[in-house]
Design a protein around this nucleic acid. Structure first.
Lengths: 336, 336
DNA sequence: AACCCGTATGTTATCGATAACATCGTAGGC
DNA sequence: GCCTACGATGTTATCGATAACATACGGGTT
C-alpha cells in the first residue's frame, strides 16, 4: 500500500496525503482528518525508506556503546533517546563489544543508512573511521571521556582526573598500599585513562604504582575471584584494591567474603561509576559518581544545537564536561 | 557521492559497480578489483536507503526488549545479532521500557523502515500491533515466554512452569512460609506468569499464597529494602522470600544483611534468571537457570528458516522451548 | 563456418515519498 | 470592483541503487 492508494481512495493527490502527515504543512483541517481516518482504517504505514531517499533525512541517530550490559550505558542511551524523540528522531543502538574493528564495521554499516548524527564512546578508535565520519558531514559526539584529540563534539569527564581524585581521597584517608586492578587496555581507552589517573595520584604521594590486570575488557563481577588472586600474588601486602569499575569491585568483595575476610577490615575495595550495585551491596562500595543520564541529555542537546546551527558552515566543536566526584562509602572505611 | 561517480571514474556503468559490491553476481575479477580499489580510495559508502527502496530488502531485523539494563536481554541481543550477521543482516534494538504503548509506537516506527523480521518479548502487547504485524508479512518471533496466544513464532520457556518448579523444589527442601515478591504486572506478562507458577506450587502443597508487590516493573536491586519491608509487614513469619528476579533477590539479601540478619539463617531468599550476580553474591542466590544466549541463537535460526522457506505460502508457526531449571544455592540452604 | 551458450557489461524502468514549482480560488484591502 | 496575497491543492522531477531486460563478445560444439 502506498500513499497513492490512500489518495485515490479520497480523490486527492498523494502529495496532500504526505502533507497531512507532516504537522507543519498547510492542509485544510477537514482534509487532514479524512486522511488520518483513512490511514487508520487501512492500517497504512508510510514507507520511510522512500521518504528518506526523497527528503534526504533519515530520521535517526546512531549510538555505539561498548556493551549493552552496563547500567550506565543504558541510562545514557535512554536519556539520549528521549532527548531525540523531542526532535522526532529515532535512536539506533549498536554494540561494539569493546572491539575497535567491530566499531569500525558498525560505523560503516550505520553510515550507509545515513544517520543524522552519530554518538560514540571515546574509547580509542580505528583510524579509518575518521575520514568516513568526516565525509558524512554529520554531528559526531564522543561521550564518557574527554579525549586528547576529539573527533568533534564531546560530552564526558576526564576518567584520568576522576580516578586520580578518588585515589587521592583514599590516600587522604590513610591508605598507602593501594593496588590497581584493571583491564588489559589498549592506549586511549577509558580504562587506560583511569589507570593513568591512579598512577599519577600514587606518584604525587610518593608511592610506587602497583598494577594488576584481569585481561581484556569489560571487567565483570566474575573476574573478582581471579582478580583478587592476581593482586595477592603480586602484592600480598595490599590493603586496598582500587578496581576499574564497580562490578569488578563487587566481584572482589565477594571473593574476599568467600575467604572469610572482612571488607573493609581485612581488605578495602573501591570501584568506579556508582552503579546501582555500589549503593546496594553490603558493604556499600566507594566509587566515583557519574551522571550517566546527564551525559545522554547533554549529547542530545548538542545534537539539537548542531541541527539548529546547521546553516553555519564551520560548526565549532563543543566540549562539555560533566561532574565525576569521589564518593567514599563503607567498603573503604578506616577502622577507628 | 554516488555509484555513478565511481562508475564514471572507471569508465564503466553504475550497474557494474553495484554488481561488484554483491559477492554473488558475475563481474570480471579485474573489474571488481578496480571498483573496490576506487571505492576504498574515495571513501565511498553506498546509500543503503536507495538500495533498500529499489531492492525492497532493508537488510535489518528489529528486536524490542523491555529493558537494556538487563544482562539477559543483552545476551539474547548479542547472540541474535551474530546469528543475523551470518545472513548479512543488521539488528536494530528498541527499548520498550516495559510499556505497551511505547512498544506499539516503536513497532510502528520500525515497520516504517521495513524490517525483514521482528522479535518481541512476550510480555502482553497493545492489541493494535497485531494487524500492523500481520500486514507487514514478515517473520515475528516472541521470546522469553510461551504465550497462550502466540503471534507467530516463539522461542522461550514457560515462566509459570519454571517458577512452579523452583517453588516446588524449595517446598521439597522443607520451606512452607514462602512469600512471593514481584511486580504489579498487567496480565499476560512474564512477571505475572511467574506469580501464577508460585501460586500453583503453593496450592499443590496445600499452602496459602502470600503475595507482595514492589510496584511496576522492572524490579531492581534498589527495590529490595522496600520489598523486604512490605513482606514483613504483610507476612511477618516469612521464612523465604521468592523474588520475581535475581536483582530484586540481591536487593532483599542486602536489606537483610543491613539489618544484621543472616541469609539464609534468619531469612532465605530466591531469585529468577541466573543473572551473573546470583552466582557471585555471597551467599550465592537460588534461582532458575535460563540460556539467554540460546534464546537469541534459536530466534536467529527461526528467522533464517523463515527466509529460506519464504516461497512457502503458509509458514507454520514454530514454537521452540528452551530449558529453565531450578538451581538451588546457598541463599536457601536449610540449616542442618 | 554456423550456431549456441555463458560471461561480462550496458540501458531503462522502477521502488515510494517529497521538494519545488504551478495552479486555483477566495478573502480582504483600496 | 479590481487587485493582491495567501491558503489549499495538484503536477512533475528527483533522490540513488537495483531488477529486469538487452547486448556484445568469445569459445566450444557440430
Amino acid at each position: 500500500m502506498r500513499m497513492q492508494d490512500i489518495a485515490r481512495r479520497l480523490g486527492i493527490s498523494a502529495m496532500t496525503v504526505s502533507r497531512a502527515l507532516k504537522s507543519d504543512s498547510s492542509v485544510a483541517p477537514a482534509t487532514r482528518a479524512a486522511v488520518l481516518k483513512a490511514i487508520e482504517e487501512l492500517g497504512y504505514v508510510p514507507n520511510q525508506i522512500a521518504g528518506s531517499l526523497s527528503s534526504s533525512r533519515s530520521g535517526f541517530a546512531a549510538i555505539l556503546v561498548p556493551s549493552l550490559n552496563n547500567p550506565h550505558f543504558s541510562e545514557t542511551v535512554l536519556a539520549l533517546g528521549s532527548a531525540l524523540q523531542d526532535r522526532n528522531m529515532q535512536l539506533l543502538i549498536g554494540n561494539t563489544d569493546y572491539d575497535r574493528r567491530k566499531e569500525a564495521e558498525l560505523i560503516r554499516a550505520f553510515l550507509a543508512r545515513k544517520p543524522e548524527a552519530i554518538i560514540l564512546t571515546s574509547d580509542g578508535h580505528d583510524p579509518r573511521i575518521l575520514p568516513m565520519l568526516a565525509k558524512a558531514r554529520i554531528p559526531v559526539v564522543e561521550i564518557w571521556d574527554l579525549p586528547a584529540r576529539p573527533i568533534q563534539h564531546v560530552v564526558g569527564f576526564s576518567n584520568q582526573r576522576a580516578m586520580r581524585g578518588l585515589i587521592n581521597a583514599l590516600i587522604g584517608q590513610g591508605y598507602s598500599r593501594i593496588t590497581y586492578l584493571g583491564e588489559a587496555d589498549d592506549a586511549d581507552t577509558r580504562g587506560a585513562s583511569r589507570r593513568l589517573g591512579y598512577c599519577e595520584a600514587m606518584a604525587a604521594a610518593g608511592l610506587a604504582p602497583r598494577l594488576c590486570s584481569i585481561g581484556r575488557p569489560p571487567a565483570t563481577m566474575s573476574d573478582g575471584e581471579r582478580g583478587l588472586d592476581t593482586v595477592l600474588a603480586a602484592y600480598p601486602d595490599t590493603e586496598l584494591v582500587a578496581c576499574v569499575s564497580d562490578p569488578l569491585a563487587f566481584g572482589v568483595i565477594a571473593a574476599c567474603q568467600r575467604r572469610g575476610w572482612a571488607v573493609p577490615g581485612r581488605m578495602a575495595v573501591s570501584g568506579f561509576g556508582d552503579f546501582e550495585i555500589a549503593r546496594i551491596a553490603v558493604p556499600a562500595i566507594t566509587t566515583v559518581q557519574i551522571d550517566a543520564a546527564g551525559i545522554g541529555r547533554e549529547a542530545g542537546a548538542i545534537i539539537s544545537e548542531a541541527f539548529s546551527a546547521r546553516r553555519d558552515a564551520s560548526p565549532a566543536a563543543i566540549i562539555r564536561a560533566v561532574p565525576a566526584l569521589p564518593c567514599l562509602r563503607a567498603s573503604t572505611a578506616m577502622a577507628r
